[in-house]
Structure formats: structure tokens, C-alpha cells
Amino acid sequence: MFQIDIVEECKANNRRAQLKLYKQYCDGMFYVAMRFLKNADDAEDVIQESFIKAFQKIEQFKGDVTFGAWLKRIVINKSIDFLKAKKQKLVELNEGYIHVAEDEDWSIEENISLDEVRQAIESLPEKYKYVVMMFLMEGFDHSEISQVLNISESACRTRLLRGKGFLKELLKDRRYVSGS
């Protein structure tokens, strides 16, 4: 059965199709939530809420992106909402007046592992951490990140640039980044 057929059956409230989509995406979405929440119980709660919302709003899924990409956005939004509810608020800065030059130099030494990069990202200040995570790890663009975090694209670019700078310094301090 093709994915679009399963989604259409879900739109018709077919419980088997919903279970099939759930089983197909549950593990992957759990890891997305864990990158934000760092707690398995919280991630499971967010995944459950995300799937409930996805099935409630499945009529809004138009197929212009994959179902997985659509669901991932819901999971990330729910994860951030969860963090906000726990008083770990994202600080919105008025950085719109700053023009940021794009810098695509993300070079690091070849011997650094993905886990080491993740650990460094985790130690970033929160306002930069989420932008860097969504850009580097989730593949979101500035427009998508600004919508999810409810910030301007200019603020998104600024936070990414500053977050990248912090990240490079953290990795350089750990002797992972090539000297530039």
C-alpha cells in the first residue's frame, strides 16, 4: 500500500491505517523529540500528542511534502511547546535590525564524531541551540525555522550565525575545529 493511500484511509478515519502510519513513523519521530527534550518519558508523551494532532488535522495534509516531513514539523512544534510549558522559555530577541552575512564555512576536523557535535550543540544557549539543531540536524530552512519558533527570518539568520560561532568556539576549545 502506498503512503498516499494510507493517508487517504486515515482521512476516512480507518484505525488500521492510522496504526500502520503510527508504527511506520513512531521510532523516527521519537528520536526527533528526544533531540529536543532529552527525556524518554517526555518524548513519548510528545509523540502521542503529535500523532493525535496529526490524525485530528490530517485533512490539512495536502501532500506537498512527505507525510514524514509534515509529521516532523508537528513533533518539533509539540516538543518546543512542551519545553515552554515547563518554563524553559525560548527568548525572543529583537534582532531584526541586524543584517547578517551568510557564512557557509562549517568546516571541522574529520575526526570529530556526530555525538561530539551533538554534545556541543546541547551546551549552546537555548536561543541558539534550537535554531542550530533545526538547521543542521533537521534540515529546516530559515523560513521554516522562523515559523516554528515564531521569530523573524532575520532573527533566525542572526541566531544561526551566532550559534554557529559559539559552536565553532566550543569545538575549537575541544580541539576539534580546524584553526581559521
Rank of each mutant, 00 (worst) to 15 (best):
I121K: 05
S180L: 15
F36V: 03
F166S: 03
G68M: 01
G179E: 15
P125R: 10
S123D: 12
K172S: 14
L90W: 05
I98C: 13
V7F: 01
K11A: 05
T66F: 04
E109G: 14
A33P: 04
G28P: 00
K20D: 04
K62H: 06
S152E: 10
K38M: 09
R15L: 01
V46W: 05
Y25W: 07
D42E: 14
W106G: 10
E92N: 10
G163L: 07
R162Q: 12
N111P: 04
L93K: 10
E95I: 10
E110G: 11
E92T: 09
N39T: 07
S178P: 09
R162H: 10
K168M: 13
L114E: 14
E109D: 13
D141E: 07
A12D: 03
V91N: 07
L93R: 08
M137A: 01
R159N: 03
V177L: 11
G28M: 00
Q3K: 11
K127W: 04
S152L: 07
Q48S: 15
D42N: 15
D5A: 13
S178N: 13
K38W: 02
I98L: 15
R162G: 01
K127L: 11
L170Q: 12
M133S: 00
I76K: 04
I47F: 10
L37M: 10
Y22H: 11
G163Y: 02
S178F: 12
L93A: 13
S79H: 01
I80Q: 06
S178E: 13
V65I: 08
G139T: 09
D105I: 07
N111L: 14
I4Q: 08
K89I: 06
R15D: 03
S178I: 15
A33L: 07
L167Q: 03
R35V: 08
V75C: 07
G179Y: 15
D103V: 14
E153L: 02
A101L: 14
K78R: 07
D41N: 15
K57M: 07
E95S: 12
M133K: 03
E9R: 11
I58M: 07
Y97N: 14
K89A: 06
K11C: 05
R162E: 05
E169S: 15
A17L: 06
R157D: 05
R35Q: 10
L171T: 02
A17I: 06
Q56E: 12
R159M: 04
G68N: 05
D45Y: 08
P125V: 05
F166H: 09
S178G: 15
F135C: 00
C156W: 03
N111H: 12
L90T: 06
V100E: 08
A120W: 06
D115R: 12
E44Y: 11
D27A: 12
H142N: 13
S178Q: 15
E8Q: 06
Q24T: 13
G63Q: 01
K20L: 11
P125I: 03
F135H: 02
Y130I: 03
E95C: 10
E49C: 06
E92A: 08
E169G: 15
L171H: 02
L170T: 06
Q3I: 14
D141V: 11
K172R: 15
